[in-house]
Design a protein around this nucleic acid. Structure first.
Lengths: 297, 297
DNA sequence: GATTGGACATAAGGAAAACTTATCGCGAAA
DNA sequence: TTTCGCGATAAGTTTTCCTTATGTCCAATC
């Protein structure tokens, strides 16, 4: 009637090892009758005798022997469960699903993944690159563990930790190199090339220029910073890119880069995760590692 | 502090499957708080969170997922334990160690093993051939499960079941073929070839001739019935062999076989096993199979 | 923005399980 | 026969586990 118990299996294993109720009971730190009862109940549950109670000795039955073998395996596996938990409590193990927005991914991801892998070799890192709203949704749904986005996200369910703050630079055609940075008013008069809608970087750029984000704009939208820079190089207009993208994107285009002196446009990159995530503490450690990774560059 | 419990693992598996405390509890046929408490205790035992309690849903943590995988395996193994027991309750499985005396083994063993293997294909039969006292000792020590010997053994610790009763025949030289069976008095005057001391068959033959068994005898002792028959064929004396040995042993020797008319000498072959052996019932079944095997011949 | 409802946690009390000490009974050894 | 070792059984107590009732939080709804 009653189900099998791990306790019964442990007692059984002890008795099988000692071949003596008294000694086995002592090894289990219980009294001999307690062990007798558990063994008896185990045998009743199985409907088979496990031990042959001789006058002077207790012996496993034939079935008891094959049973004992299996039980030893099971107990070992169960004990390994505990080890597994203990191990994963300290060091970070298993899968870590990171979301990241497209205006960060190409520039920071190699360094981030490198440093994380070095810091947590047992971590299986999976990356998903898409826009912030989708990342937030997937984070909520438990499809992601954390995301690297531009702050603030301002979702009360998420914890936010800043990673780095970086300026935007103006990208103009190469022939405009050396010209001073235009004022915002002048900027609004230029043909400003931006990312497609949905990219937070688009909104941040518009915001810097004091242009309402909702309003339909004339002009072309690019699907990546790389595309935008190439368009600038072709003389189609100007654009912004974040500082971290400068080196990569302006290398092979006839463009010039201009930094603003005062009131520099900037964005804050940060990590977010569900507050309810029990990994919160370890995500904090990860955030610190990523922080260092980004500062170092 | 408290140890892992199978119950906890079962509840955990249910919750992992349902992702909902209420539903999982229902599936386990317990109340929701009971499940909550067990899960909580499991998590405390492990020192790690297994589930992420969201506002609207319950999700496994990363560690919880790898944990769940292992737990499923363990639960499956444990359930197989029950199956294993249930299976071995009916049909006979595992090792069966049979002891048998030398004056039976060559003649009955092939048929016995054949029939047993046919009746219980999952039985792993091991045979040990030696004299009755040694068999009895090994049976007591648990080195054998059963033995096929001449009854009675009269050990109160052993159960005895007769298998067959067979007569002894007198083996004389071929030139004496057709001569009537001698009386016991005449027998005592002949040179009687017997097995070495320790063989019960020796004692039974002596007993038939009303010769005290303990007394030192003139004459030669053979180590097997085959040897004895060959010696008879060489004209050295006469001997007894059991009926079952006639066909095999007298085929290639110049001997004649004589059966007694009245007061035929005989022995009863039977199976013995420890009364305390929980397999007693199944040994009974085996005895019946062997019984049939011997009758059929 | 107050309210309602769903869902898990907590509390308290009671039923069941498990352990303890004491004792019995059996078989072997002295 | 007595004695002794050892496992089974009995009775009582502690611990565990489950139940019902209640609390709390959060999200959805009006």
């Amino acid at each position: 009637m009653s189900n099998l118990t791990l306790k019964q299996l442990r007692y059984f294993a002890a008795l099988a090892r000692h071949g003596h109720f008294g000694h086995a009971a002592e090894a289990c730190a219980i009294s001999q009758p307690a062990l007798s009862m558990q063994i008896k109940e185990l045998e009743e549950t199985l409907g088979t005798m496990l031990f042959e109670r001789g006058a002077r000795q207790v012996r496993l039955t034939g079935f008891g022997e094959v049973f004992a073998e299996r039980v030893r395996e099971i107990l070992r596996d169960v004990d390994e469960l505990g080890d597994l938990a203990r191990a994963s409590r300290d060091r970070l193990v298993g899968r870590l699903r990171i979301g990241i927005i497209p205006t960060i991914a190409p520039y920071l991801l190699p360094r981030i993944i490198g440093d994380l892998t070095r810091a947590f070799p047992e971590l299986d890192i999976q990356v998903r690159e898409t826009l912030t709203p989708k990342l937030a949704q997937e984070l909520s749904d438990g499809l992601l563990d954390t995301a690297i986005v531009a702050l603030p996200v301002s979702d009360p369910a998420f914890a936010e930790v800043p990673i780095l703050t970086e300026n935007f630079v103006l990208v103009r055609h190469a022939r405009q190199a050396g010209q001073p940075a235009p004022s915002r008013e002048k900027l609004r008069g230029m043909r400003l090339l931006l990312l497609e809608e949905g990219h937070c970087f688009r909104d941040q750029a518009l915001s810097f220029c004091s242009i309402p984000t909702g309003r339909p704009r004339e002009g072309l939208d690019g699907s990546s910073l790389s595309t935008l820079v190439q368009m600038v190089g072709a003389g189609i207009g100007v654009t912004f890119i974040p500082e971290m993208a400068v080196e990569v994107e302006t290398r092979s285009a006839s463009v010039s880069v201009t930094r603003f002196d005062d009131a520099q446009p900037c964005r804050t990159i940060g990590m977010i995760w569900r507050r309810s995530n029990p990994l919160a503490g370890q995500l904090d450690r990860i955030a610190r590692v990523i922080h260092c990774a980004c500062q170092a560059g």
